[in-house]
């Protein structure tokens, strides 16, 4: 099983639009939206949900006012300032460590597991898709990402697909780390701006830290050709493959408004050809197949 994860460091560089375009080009693949915080891929894929499952996160403390004697032990021990003066738990601040639960002398604190969101197994016009929705202001995004990545691999195996295409979250923190571990390769979408190159450098460092090979593609490259050049030089310096350039093209926004991928919108364009070339480079890159395997389905997973 091979998995490509599309990440960017900086948000809004075009991860989801390109993921959708790749999905339209890929053969026999399964899709995964690992940006569980602000998932958008479904807006282009219009998945038909086949199965919906609750995602249970960690516990959250609840003080029973009938048993509480107001001794203040919980308040004293809580490092997250989650216990209010009226001995109620501020659920926004509660980290779910359960220390107050264990040390309450009156056993007045409950620790029910909380439903933190849900995840879905769906079908789309480009194959099966696993996606999720983390509840507003919830923790455990990394845990949910790990869960859906495990599910998507299982689904891919069941359906005989040999490729998973995963739309990753922005940043370099918890959900990103959960998205890239064990991936075959990362496609890093960079925009040619001072922020774009700054964030790319951190994401490349992260890829190296977790030993996942990366490949870089510059989106909206013509907004700043010198910066595009600098990004590609930086990629080469860090031993990251350069995939190519995608121009600033309003067709991306227009196709998004129409709920379609780039390839389903309008007449064939030069941009489409560039994205097609980039996809061919990804699929044929040595990092996608370091052992020269001819048929991925026949290999032992």
């Amino acid at each position: 099983m091979r998995e490509i994860v599309i990440i960017s460091g900086k948000g809004g560089t075009g991860k989801t639009s390109l993921t959708a375009a790749f999905a339209a080009l890929a053969k026999n693949s399964v899709l995964c939206d690992a940006d569980v915080d602000a998932a958008d891929l479904h807006l282009l894929m219009q998945p038909e949900i086949r199965q919906q499952t609750d995602f249970m996160g960690g516990g959250i403390a609840v003080i029973n006012p009938d048993l509480c004697i107001g001794c203040g032990t919980c308040m004293e021990l809580c490092r997250f300032e989650a216990i209010t003066d009226r001995f109620e738990v501020d659920t926004i601040r509660c980290e779910g460590c359960g220390v107050c639960v264990d040390f309450c002398p009156e056993k007045a604190i409950d620790f029910p597991t909380k439903r933190c969101g849900e995840w879905y197994l769906s079908d789309t016009r480009f194959g099966p898709m696993v996606h999720a929705r983390l509840g507003i202001a919830e923790e455990n995004s990394g845990k949910l990402v790990s869960l859906i990545r495990k599910e998507v691999r299982q689904l891919a195996e069941e359906r005989g697909a040999d490729l998973v295409i995963t739309d990753g979250p922005p940043g370099i923190g918890c959900p990103v780390i959960a998205s890239i571990g064990g991936a075959t390769a990362l496609v890093i979408v960079v925009e040619p701006t001072v922020s774009g190159i700054h964030d790319m450098e951190r994401v490349v460092e992260l890829a190296a830290h977790f030993r996942v090979p990366g490949m870089v593609c510059v989106n909206k490259w013509d907004l700043n050709p010198e910066m595009t050049e600098a990004i590609e030089q930086l990629a080469i310096k860090h031993n990251v493959a350069v995939l190519g350039r995608v121009p600033f093209d309003p067709a991306f926004t227009r196709s998004m408004v129409a709920g379609k991928t780039l390839f389903e919108y309008g007449e064939p364009t030069a941009t489409q050809q560039q994205v097609r070339d980039i996809w061919a480079k990804i699929i044929n890159s040595p990092s996608m197949n370091p052992l020269g395997i001819m048929d991925f389905k026949s290999t032992i997973q």
């Binding site: 948000g11 926004i92 202001a137 919830e138 922005p170 940043g171």
Partner: peptide, 14 residues
């Protein structure tokens, strides 16, 4: 603030 709606955003908005 960072993007998203989970704990880092809450920490930056609360």
């Amino acid at each position: 603030a960072p993007p998203g709606t989970s704990c880092p955003v809450i920490a930056a908005m609360n």
